Computed example of a mutant assay.
Amino acid sequence: MTTISAEAFLQPRLKALVAEAQEAGYSQDVIIALLINLLDTDIFSAPSDTRKGEQA
């Protein structure tokens, strides 16, 4: 286990990602909205109760 908080770990990476996207011409509002949208997808959702090998 690390002594650094999740916030301290992720914040510089997120800032760099946003800065890189802004350099590519995207507005900060669009970047943040898209990040929120991406995090709200099934990729980042909690695992379902279905057992391995079964379909929901």
Score class of each variant (00 low, 15 high):
I32D: 09
F44T: 01
E20A: 07
E23C: 13
T41H: 03
T2P: 03
K52V: 15
T3E: 09
V30H: 13
E7F: 04
I36D: 11
G53E: 07
Q22C: 09
Q55L: 15
M1D: 05
L14D: 01
T2L: 02
I4G: 00
Q28A: 13
G53S: 13
S45M: 04
T3S: 08
S48I: 11
L10Q: 00
A21I: 05
V30P: 04
P47W: 06
T50V: 14
S45Q: 11
A19Y: 12
L10R: 03
S5C: 02
R13E: 02
A46F: 11
A16L: 09
R51E: 15
V18T: 04
T3P: 03
L14C: 02
L35S: 06
A19F: 11
T41F: 08
V30T: 14
S5G: 02
S45R: 07
E7C: 04
A24M: 11
E7Q: 03
Q55D: 14
G53P: 06
I31P: 02
F44A: 03
F9L: 07
S48P: 05
L34K: 08
T3G: 06
Q22A: 09
T41G: 06
A33C: 06
L14T: 01
A24Y: 11
R51V: 15
M1R: 01
A56N: 12
E7M: 01
L38C: 02
D40I: 00
F9P: 04
D40K: 05
E23V: 10
L17G: 01
T41K: 06
N37I: 07
L17E: 01
A8I: 05
T41Y: 04
A8C: 03
T3W: 08
F44E: 01
G25Q: 13
D40Q: 05
I32C: 09
R13A: 06
A8Q: 06
E7S: 05
F9S: 01
V30L: 14
L14I: 03
T50H: 15
Q55P: 11
D49N: 15
P47Q: 08
E7H: 04
K15D: 11
Q22T: 10
T2Y: 00
R51T: 15
T41Q: 10
T41D: 08
D42I: 10
E54W: 14
A6W: 00
R13V: 07
A46L: 13
D49F: 10
S48M: 08
E23I: 10
A56P: 11
D49W: 07
F44M: 02
E20H: 01
S48W: 08
K15I: 12
G53T: 13
I32W: 05
L17R: 00
L38W: 03
S27Y: 15
N37M: 11
V18H: 01
A56W: 13
T50A: 14
T2G: 07
I31E: 00
A16N: 07
I43G: 04
I36W: 04
K52C: 15
L39Q: 03
Q11H: 07
A33E: 07
Q11C: 02
I36S: 09
I36V: 09
Q11G: 05
I4V: 09
D40F: 04
D42Q: 03
